[in-house]
Amino acid sequence: MFHNPKTYTIEEAKRKLEHYCAYQERCHQEVQQKLYGMNMIPEAVDLIIVHLLEHNFLNEERFAKTFVRGKFNIKKWGKHRLTRELKKKDISKYNVTQAMKEIDEDEYYKVFNELAEKKALLIEEKDVYKKKKKLIDYLLYRGWESHLVFDKVNELIK
């Protein structure tokens, strides 16, 4: 019993990846993984990626901006976490910087304050130090800057 993986012509793979990229913003890394998963040879992968770039199906700056807006608005991630996640996806420093400009400073602090205050109320811990630690860990994990976190925790929990 041989497992016969489906093979694709370059044209079939192009169409499939156009749809993949049109459905949702993708980064180069995701597209490459998808193509290698389709058993495409490196030369074909390069050809298809160039095609996707030329026809604007693949745009790293646009991906980074969409990623930042989405994760900030929905998951309430801070700048450290956003930067870390984009770096994991091999997004260039320039595109990371451009994407961070998508976040309005006032909105950033507003979201941070709301998140911290809401979480502080939800932590059921009598010991002040343990409560502070839980809130600090939660906010740092979400990627908020440590100076913001420590100031806010000290303001909220006395």
Score class of each variant (00 low, 15 high):
80 H>S: 10
89 K>D: 08
15 R>M: 12
41 I>N: 13
61 E>L: 05
9 T>S: 15
19 H>N: 11
103 I>Y: 07
97 T>C: 05
100 M>Q: 12
66 T>Q: 12
12 E>I: 15
85 E>A: 06
28 H>C: 09
65 K>C: 13
89 K>M: 11
68 V>N: 11
94 Y>P: 01
106 D>N: 15
36 Y>D: 05
92 S>C: 03
20 Y>I: 02
80 H>C: 13
47 L>I: 03
63 F>Q: 02
56 N>L: 04
38 M>N: 10
26 R>L: 02
68 V>P: 01
45 V>L: 01
44 A>N: 14
87 K>V: 02
75 K>I: 03
38 M>C: 11
52 L>M: 12
74 I>L: 07
14 K>D: 11
50 V>Y: 03
43 E>I: 09
104 D>F: 09
54 E>R: 07
58 L>N: 02
43 E>T: 10
62 R>L: 06
42 P>L: 09
101 K>R: 11
36 Y>K: 09
91 I>A: 07
74 I>T: 15
37 G>D: 14
73 N>K: 05
45 V>Y: 06
100 M>E: 08
69 R>L: 12
21 C>E: 02
71 K>D: 13
87 K>T: 15
25 E>C: 14
43 E>K: 14
73 N>E: 13
26 R>Y: 05
23 Y>G: 09
56 N>A: 08
58 L>E: 02
54 E>C: 00
85 E>W: 00
53 L>I: 07
11 E>F: 09
38 M>F: 07
99 A>S: 08
70 G>E: 05
88 K>A: 01
63 F>A: 03
9 T>R: 10
32 Q>R: 04
62 R>Q: 11
102 E>G: 05
71 K>F: 10
22 A>N: 13
96 V>G: 01
55 H>Q: 10
12 E>H: 08
41 I>R: 12
67 F>V: 04
34 K>H: 05
16 K>D: 08
10 I>F: 00
31 V>E: 01
100 M>I: 07
46 D>E: 15
74 I>Q: 11
80 H>Y: 14
91 I>S: 02
79 K>V: 12
32 Q>D: 07
87 K>W: 07
33 Q>H: 08
75 K>R: 12
78 G>F: 02
87 K>C: 10
67 F>T: 01
59 N>W: 01
93 K>Y: 05
32 Q>E: 15
90 D>N: 14
55 H>L: 06
87 K>F: 10
73 N>P: 01
43 E>P: 00
84 R>E: 13
54 E>A: 08
103 I>W: 02
41 I>W: 11
102 E>Q: 12
49 I>G: 03
34 K>D: 01
63 F>W: 03
89 K>A: 06
101 K>Y: 14
29 Q>M: 13
53 L>P: 04
20 Y>F: 15
51 H>C: 00
